[in-house]
Design a binder for these strands. Structure first.
Length: 438
RNA sequence: CGGGGCGUAGCUCAGCCUGGUAGAGCACUGCUUUCGGGAGGCAGGGGUCGCGAGUUCAAAUCCCGCCGCCCCGACCA
């Protein structure tokens, strides 16, 4: 992509409304624009990141045996009356009346809808288990949206729902999602720590929030340092095999958000292993048993011919929130530092002197070769001052920068800069390309 | 929803207290000199001062109402 034709409205100064770093950088870097409180337009650069995150989430859900479908954003109120949540949900739910005076709502979540789909179609225990997900926009009319896309009213979320005949089955589904989440976040270079979370009226230990540590996090968290020292889960996983070892490994140490914090248990840890920090919740997995299946009569015929309400769980990942969360965890004074797996482009080429025949030719050639090798490349071909172009490239945080200028070309070299380390090397174009491609 | 703050050019803000007919920097347009870490010169364009109603000869400025946005709290992926 050439910058001269790309819709990338960079802001040089910090908008006053943005208080936290990810929000500021997303506005300044031309990723999003606010439309109303907590509601954002995703501009081309931001959308690229959102899509890349979405793709990782999708691949890992698929790998865990979860099947994608797509439910609507607008739901009939009727279903929510069935589950009893229509009145319970309160003002956070955006209610809409259509032209026929039918009560509708913009979905804040999809348990009712998926349960309805499920009960219409699945009648026998032989058809279980089922694990379904979708990635869809949700709306929760938060009293006070803040932190940009991290706490918007409209947000993109992946939510999965499991249906099983019994608790053992539900536990297997829970474990699959637990491990899938470890892998998903690892691919984004995030150190996500599963922490005990509120499990509601069902009780038990089948609720975890996946938290990344960041000073700007909304919640106070407490955990054993061992969890931070762990490597993230990069192994390939057999989701049909025994997942308990993974669960044990990641739940053996103390980790809780302030809601579930047990000061006594925490105090029992050696002082040097106690970590108190701020965290951002990026995922939540939750077993809730028969809460919806009983209320909405989602039953299957069991082995003995009896009607059995199915065991359910739901599993969310805040996809749009992750964009902000990843920035919170990956930035410096100059701007964003994207992990390669979610970067909007892998390489940014800076043509320091557009109009100069040598610079143009070298930039074009490098750009062409990278694109032909399947590397998504951004070429800054604007006729701005060099300093401004360096600053912009640092701001948008592409993993690699290739700086092509007349001074270097005279010596047959370009400059390759790794955004994260800031390390700059002068290399031939060929070596720069092979470094980036390796 | 309680408490606090802000709304003046695309962005950051000054002007408001003490009313006199709108400014700066950056951005933008043209020309030009520059050209390796947010360049310089010259010349331009751009604002019913959030909206409405008042007071006044006169309102960005004072009064009242409304709307929007931000921050703290309670609530939340």
């Amino acid at each position: 992509m050439r910058r001269s034709s790309y819709f990338l409205p960079i802001l040089k100064e910090n908008p006053t409304e943005a208080q936290i770093v990810s929000h500021r950088l997303m506005l300044r870097g031309g990723m999003v624009r606010q439309s109303a409180a907590g509601i954002y337009t995703w501009l081309p650069l931001g959308l690229r990141v959102l899509r890349r995150i979405e793709r990782i989430v999708r691949e890992e859900q698929d790998a865990a045996g979860c099947q994608e479908l797509l439910m609507p954003t607008i739901q009939p109120a009727e279903l929510w009356r069935e589950s009893g949540r229509y009145d319970v949900y309160g003002k956070e739910m955006l209610r809409i009346t259509d032209r026929h005076e039918r009560e509708m709502l913009f979905g804040p979540t999809n348990e009712e809808l998926i349960t309805d789909i499920f009960r219409q179609a699945v009648k026998s225990y032989r058809d279980l288990p089922k694990l379904l997900y979708h990635i869809q926009w949700k709306f929760r009319d938060e009293i006070r949206p803040r932190f940009g896309v991290m706490r918007g009213r409209e947000f993109l979320m992946k939510d999965s729902y499991s249906f099983d005949l019994d608790y053992a089955g539900a536990k297997r589904a829970y474990n699959k999602m637990f491990v899938a989440y470890l892998r998903t976040f690892a691919r984004m270079d995030l150190k996500a720590i599963p922490m005990k979370a509120e499990s509601g009226p069902i009780g038990g230990d089948m609720s975890h929030e996946f938290i990344i540590l960041a000073d700007t996090g909304e919640t106070e968290v407490f955990c054993d340092r061992s969890l931070i020292e762990y490597d993230v889960l990069r192994d390939s996983v057999d989701f049909d095999g025994d997942l308990e070892p993974y669960i044990k490994r990641w739940t053996q140490y103390y980790a809780a958000t302030s809601d579930k914090h047990d000061p006594a248990a925490f105090a029992a840890l050696p002082v040097e292993r106690r970590v108190t920090a701020r965290g951002i919740e990026i995922g939540h997995i939750f077993y809730f048993g028969k809460k919806y299946s009983e209320a909405m009569k989602a039953t299957v015929t069991g082995p003995n011919g009896e009607a059995v309400a199915v065991e359910m769980g739901s599993y969310g990942i805040g996809v749009s929130r992750l964009v902000g969360g990843i920035i919170e965890a990956n930035h410096d004074d100059a701007g964003i530092v994207w992990p390669k797996s979610v970067a909007p482009f892998q390489v940014g080429i800076i043509n320091l002197k557009p109009g100069d025949a040598d610079c143009d030719a070298a930039s074009q050639e490098t750009y062409r070769k990278l694109n032909e090798s399947g590397v998504e490349t951004f070429l800054d071909d604007l006729n701005e001052s060099p300093g401004s172009k360096f600053a912009t490239m640092d701001l948008i945080g592409l993993p690699w920068q290739i700086v092509i200028g007349p001074r270097g070309l005279k010596k047959g070299i370009v400059e390759l800069k790794e955004r994260r380390s800031g390390k700059r090397e002068e290399l031939s174009t060929e070596s720069a390309l092979s470094r980036v491609l390796s």
